[in-house]
Design a protein around this nucleic acid. Structure first.
Length: 356
DNA sequence: AACTCGGGGGG
DNA sequence: CCCCCAGAGTT
C-alpha cells in the first residue's frame, strides 16, 4: 500500500516521531518499561480518559506490583481497586489474562499478535499497543484517536462506526509504521489525536499539517465520518438502604454477568405499582418500617439511564434469600458502583455527620 | 453487524 | 444538551 510518495512517508514518520519525543506528556506508564504495567495501563485506558486513569493506575500497580500479585488476588480486591472506573468486566478479564500468562506462559507475556490476542480482554487495539510499546514490535494499535487522525491526513471518508472500517486503518498503519520505533509512532498518533487532532482540531499547532489532505482542503472538521446511533432507555429505579436493629445494612451482590457484574448494592426495584413498602414485601418477603426519602438523581450509562430514587428504612426481619447484612465498615469495603456510592455517601451524611 | 458494558470531561 | 473517550465480549 502506497499512501504518500516514499520520500513523503519518511518525512511524515520523522515529523510525527520527533514531535512526539519532544512534546509527549509525562504519564506514569511512560516512566516504565515493565510490559505488565503497560498492559494494565492500556486496559484502563479503554474508553477512558488519561486524567481519569492516572490515579487508578498508580494505586493498582502499587496494590498489585507483579503479575503473580494480580493473578492470585481475590476478585473482590481487584474490583475494589477498579471501583468507579467503570466497565468492570475489564478488571476481571485482565486478571484472567494475567493468570493465564503466569500459569501457561511462565509469566512471560506473549510477544506475537497471534498469542497475545488469545488472552482475556486483549483485543486488536490492546494487542498492538502492548506489542509496540512494550516490545517494539511493529504492529498496528488503532483506537479512536488513530482513526480520527488518519481519516484527516489521508481523507478517508469511510464510516468509523462500522466495525470493518477499522481494518482499513489497520492496513494503513501497517503500511506507514516506523519499523525502527513503532512505539513512538503509535503513541505519536494517539498523542496527536488526544492533544491536537481533537474533534475540534488545533491545526495551527499540528506538526504534520503539511501532510494532511483534510487540512489542505479545509475539511478537517468534517472528519472522521461517524454515523450516530440513537437509542436510550430510561428506567425508574428505587433503592432502599435498610438497617436492622444491630445497625447493619442490607446489601446484595449483582449477578456475575451483565450490567455492573458482581458489584454490591442496596435492594433495588424498577417500578412501584402501588406502594414501595408493598413491593418490598412481595419482592423480598420482608417487612420494613416507613420509608424516609434520601436522594434523587439520574445515573447515565452508555445505553441506559437510571432515574434513581433512594430511601432509608429499618427492619426487624432477617435477611431474605440472596441478601446479607453488613456492618458499616463492611459496607465501606465492598466494591460498589457509583450510583450505590452516592446513596451510601448520603446515608453516612444523614446518620454519622453531626448536624449543627 | 448489532448490542452490551461505566463514568466523566468538555464544548 | 451533546459527543466521545488509548475497546472488548457476546450474540
Amino acid at each position: 500500500m502506497q499512501l504518500f510518495e516514499r520520500k513523503l512517508e519518511n518525512e511524515f514518520r520523522k515529523a510525527l516521531i520527533s514531535w512526539y519525543l519532544e512534546e509527549k506528556r509525562d504519564l506514569p506508564w511512560r516512566r516504565t518499561s515493565n510490559p505488565y504495567y503497560i498492559w494494565v495501563s492500556e486496559v484502563m485506558l479503554q474508553q477512558t480518559r488519561v486524567d481519569t486513569v492516572i490515579p487508578y493506575y498508580e494505586r493498582f500497580i502499587e496494590r498489585f506490583p507483579s503479575l503473580a500479585d494480580l493473578a492470585y488476588a481475590k476478585e473482590e480486591d481487584v474490583l475494589k481497586m477498579w471501583e468507579g472506573l467503570g466497565y468492570y468486566s475489564r478488571a476481571r478479564n485482565l486478571q484472567a489474562g494475567v493468570k493465564e500468562v503466569v500459569e501457561e506462559y511462565g509469566s512471560w507475556i506473549p510477544e506475537t499478535r497471534k498469542d497475545i490476542s488469545k488472552l482475556k480482554g486483549v483485543g486488536p487495539y490492546t494487542a498492538g499497543a502492548v506489542l509496540s510499546i512494550a516490545f517494539d514490535v511493529p504492529e498496528h494499535a488503532v483506537d479512536g484517536n488513530v482513526m480520527r487522525v488518519l481519516s484527516r491526513i489521508l481523507l478517508i471518508e469511510e464510516d468509523i462506526a462500522i466495525p470493518r472500517t477499522r481494518k482499513i486503518f489497520e492496513e494503513v498503519v501497517m503500511a506507514l509504521i516506523d519499523k525502527e520505533d513503532p512505539s513512538s509512532f503509535n503513541q505519536g498518533l494517539m498523542e496527536l489525536g488526544a492533544t491536537i487532532c481533537t474533534p475540534r482540531p488545533k491545526c495551527l499547532l499540528c506538526p504534520v499539517r503539511d501532510f494532511c489532505t483534510a487540512f489542505h482542503e479545509g475539511r478537517q472538521e468534517e472528519l472522521p465520518v461517524k454515523s450516530k446511533k440513537v437509542k436510550m432507555k430510561t428506567v425508574p429505579m428505587h433503592s432502599i438502604a435498610i438497617r436492622n436493629t444491630e445497625g447493619k445494612w442490607l446489601l446484595t451482590q449483582r449477578p456475575s454477568k451483565g450490567l455492573l457484574a458482581n458489584m454490591w448494592e442496596f435492594p433495588m426495584v424498577e417500578n412501584i405499582p402501588v406502594s414501595l413498602e408493598d413491593m418490598v414485601k412481595t419482592e423480598f418477603g420482608m417487612n420494613i418500617g416507613s420509608l424516609a426519602p434520601l436522594t434523587e438523581f439520574r445515573h447515565v450509562f452508555s445505553h441506559l439511564t437510571w432515574e434513581m430514587k433512594s430511601y432509608m428504612a429499618v427492619t426487624d426481619d432477617a435477611a431474605p434469600e440472596g441478601f446479607e447484612f453488613f456492618s458499616t465498615e463492611e459496607v465501606e469495603a465492598l466494591p460498589k458502583a457509583v450510583p450505590v456510592m452516592k446513596i451510601w455517601d448520603e446515608v453516612k451524611n444523614r446518620l454519622f455527620v453531626k448536624k449543627t
